[in-house]
Design a protein around this nucleic acid. Structure first.
Lengths: 250, 250
DNA sequence: ATTGCTAATGGCACGGAGTGCCGTTAGCAT
DNA sequence: ATGCTAACGGCACTCCGTGCCATTAGCAAT
């Protein structure tokens, strides 16, 4: 309807990488606002393109579909995660590395609270957009699972594949939980603080190999015992497990 | 192109619930076969409808979209899961109940190995179909999370919401892992046996409250102890935990 | 058997998504 | 000033998904 007379977008803004980013964001903001005020189905791609001052055809050069318009470019974040995993220290707890990876996703949302919050109301309301979001989460989860599987296999973990899938899902779910809470708070709460707690829960649940030695004060030992074993055997095994500093019974 | 001269589908098969099921399945099989031999994009809805001997318009009365054509009706399974949760014994381990719920999904795949395996090659290959699959998994996961959250809250668990989301994701991931393995084996392996093992891993990871008492032969006790506690305290607590046969505290 | 009701069906037409194609033009180098 | 390159916009096309409506099978009542 209302066409800005002197829209900068008329120029070949996409010529440079800088310009592409700019126009992409303009389109995203336009799409989000239109979806929010007129509804997702009622808004056509023409509307979005017009609001951004570009042609319909150009829209599809920036987004593969109408749904994609409101999402950030996950590919970049995915590359960052891959790089972090590639450079990660192999002596670090694999799950904590995975948490660090998914934190990059969290940061990408935190970097633009306004857009993120608005997008949330949309993904929370419009089914196609929610599905799209879920699909992208799944892509992250696959990357996590792949890294974890490799780590678990070299660590000689039994059922490495299963453990990796489950742990990746848990890490992703923890991230999603934190993100949701943060979004529902309107972007005001301390997401990283929540993330630390949430990740700790996941790490505790899946780090069967050794108890955390780095937290100085009060260590924890998890022992798995058969109740049919004699009490003497149990005591012997427990005390043996407690004594050595690094040797874990397996 | 080739129109069956005496296609039963010409009749109002959809009149009865029985008939609807039949035609729905006919359409699904037709879609799967066409997608496999001609490719997903190349196959039009007209092709599917024609192969099933019905009109294009009728196709959309059975499936909301072209992508949906190859999937079973998840709504029924979702209802079954909801019912199972509603009738579940509140003294059962919540996570085991969740596993039982997701086993219904597994069973729905197992009930038709041929279609399930073919569908897998499609969801594994075609991005839109994979996204669709992921979206339906997410719906299951939400139902699991809702149940677990309610259980955890009544159990007075701290961080019930987070725990529920993470545990639900883990259960779903375990299920997906088993399903994938079974599908990759062409539907030959013992899915339920794999599922038991996979679920056990998840239960072990998240059941901090009490060990399982129902598995008859050789029970397992997981004890979480502070290494700073005295050995006497540890022994006392262990023996106290081992003695009662069925009476677990909560 | 005839009649009337109900609901599944299929054809038609329409809007909108996504794509291939191509002429146009801005930005840049020579 | 000229030529090259690539983003842009418009056009046309296919196909998806849906509203509308006439048709007809199946069933019930008379």
């Amino acid at each position: 309807m209302s066409v800005e007379p002197q829209q900068t977008g008329r120029r070949r803004v996409g010529r440079t990488t800088e310009g592409r980013r700019l126009l992409r964001r303009t389109l995203t903001v336009a799409a989000i606002d239109l979806f929010l005020e007129s509804g997702y189905e009622q808004t056509t791609v023409d509307d979005i393109a017009a609001a951004a001052g570009v042609g319909r055809r150009t829209f599809f050069r920036y987004f593969r579909s109408k749904e994609d318009a409101i999402f950030p470019s996950h590919d970049e974040v995915l590359r960052d995660i891959e790089r972090l995993f590639a450079e990660a220290d192999d002596r670090q707890n694999p799950i904590e590395v995975a948490c660090a990876g998914v934190t990059l996703v969290l940061d990408s949302y935190l970097s633009d609270p306004d857009v993120s919050v608005k997008r949330y109301t949309l993904t929370h309301t419009v089914a196609p957009l929610r599905d799209r979001e879920v699909a992208s989460v799944d892509r992250y989860q696959r990357v996590l699972a792949r890294y974890l599987r490799a780590r678990f296999e070299t660590d000689g973990q039994p059922l490495a594949d299963l453990r990796a899938s489950v742990a990746a899902a848990a890490v992703a779910a923890a991230h999603n939980h934190v993100l949701r809470r943060w979004l529902r708070s309107g972007g005001t709460e301390d997401a990283h603080a929540m993330a630390r707690k949430a990740f700790q829960l996941v790490v505790d649940a899946f780090s069967t190999e050794q108890p955390r030695r780095e937290t100085g004060d009060d260590e924890t030992v998890v022992a798995v015992l058969r109740s049919s074993a004699s009490l003497a055997e149990v005591v012997q095994q427990i005390s043996a497990s407690l004594r050595p500093a690094g040797g874990h019974p397996q």
